Simulated scan of single mutants.
Amino acid sequence: MTTSTQHAGGADFHRVGVAGSGIMGIGIAELCAKAGLDVRVAVFSDASLATAPQRLAASLDRGVAKGKLTADERDAALGRVSFTRDLGELADRQLVVEAVKEDEQLKQDLFASLDKIVEDPDAILATNTSSIPVVRLAAATRRPGQVLGMHFFNPVPALPLVELIDSVLTDETVSARALVFVRDVLGKKPIPSPDRAGFLVNALLFPYLLSAIRMVESGLATAEVIDQGMTQGCAHPMGPLRLADLIGLDTTVSIAQAMYEEFKEPLYAPPPLLKRMVEGGMLGKKAGRGFYVYA
């Protein structure tokens, strides 16, 4: 294995792979491209192969419109990102970030595949999971010491925080490299989080979101009134129901279920209303309808 002296920091990552092209995957790809890295995104459907580049371009265009980057910087970032349907094209990557939906079996299968595909023995395999303990994904590989959590927040280009989660099997050198990469290359603010369902932020956030959903379910207040109370009374930038819509109600159910399975505490259990909404296709902002209706 390469020594820690040779891998003194995250600047040794030049070729980054992203597995998944949803909201988080595209956001991570954009962030890495703007940092000057060669980014390859693996998508999992022909439809995504067509739509993912369009969503990346649209996000960068919004950055230009807001004055956050120039047209030349946008074009340069676009030129650094390629898309593929072949997971095998991530073979030469030095860091791969998994960003598929919050399904433990799906993620385990993906990590087992990446373990066989990625050639560099010093490559880091990171997961953007919101709730699944990292050690369960690491155990699907033959290099569990190279696996850690790198949990970004939505929208990735805008929010500064990244949770870094070591499993009990993560090598210290890997942790150090990931920290330098996130902090110095991507310009984010990393914090260490424990390898337990929900990690740090969601362990605090989700009881709050689920409590707000239960208030709607019981008829105590409408989503609008609850959100108004928290934004105007507690100075939150967004109310809990609109935030749940932004996260995605299907993702909210997955995270809540993972936390409930780990801790068996009722405050983590997804409310029936939330499950019925997801079953009915009301997934939040991405679907045009959740606790609110979106144009």
Rank of each mutant, 00 (worst) to 15 (best):
H7V: 08
P237A: 07
M24S: 10
M230H: 04
L283M: 12
L246K: 03
D171I: 12
R276A: 10
L164Q: 07
H7G: 01
R177I: 13
E261H: 08
E224M: 07
A221P: 05
A176R: 10
F83R: 12
D75Q: 15
D75L: 11
I132D: 08
D103C: 14
V174W: 13
N202S: 06
I28P: 08
D86Q: 07
D166G: 13
G27P: 05
G10V: 08
D72M: 11
L200T: 14
T2E: 08
V182D: 02
D115I: 02
D122Q: 09
K275A: 09
V278G: 08
A221G: 03
Y292L: 01
S193E: 03
I124P: 06
K189I: 11
S45W: 02
F199M: 10
G25C: 12
A112P: 05
K116E: 02
S130Y: 01
R177Q: 02
D72W: 00
Q257W: 04
H151M: 09
T84V: 00
D46F: 01
Q146L: 14
V216F: 12
D171G: 13
G281M: 13
T251G: 06
L209P: 07
S218R: 15
M277K: 14
D120F: 00
L205V: 05
A126V: 06
I191F: 01
T70S: 15
G198A: 06
G281A: 10
L106H: 13
F263V: 12
P272D: 09
A50R: 03
H7I: 07
M24C: 14
F291V: 07
L267W: 00
L209M: 13
S254W: 05
A287P: 05
R242F: 04
L241V: 12
A221M: 03
G27C: 06
L87G: 00
D122S: 08
R74M: 02
R62C: 05
L274G: 09
P272A: 12
G25Y: 02
L148T: 06
A212E: 02
E89F: 03
V100H: 00
L200M: 01
R136D: 04
L87C: 00
A58I: 06
G149E: 06
A123M: 05
L246M: 13
Y268E: 00
S21D: 10
L110M: 15
E265W: 00
G88T: 05
C234Y: 15
R80G: 02
D227M: 06
L56F: 04
E102Y: 11
S167F: 14
A223N: 07
V147R: 09
T84F: 00
G219R: 09
E262R: 04
L37A: 10
G233M: 05
P192N: 10
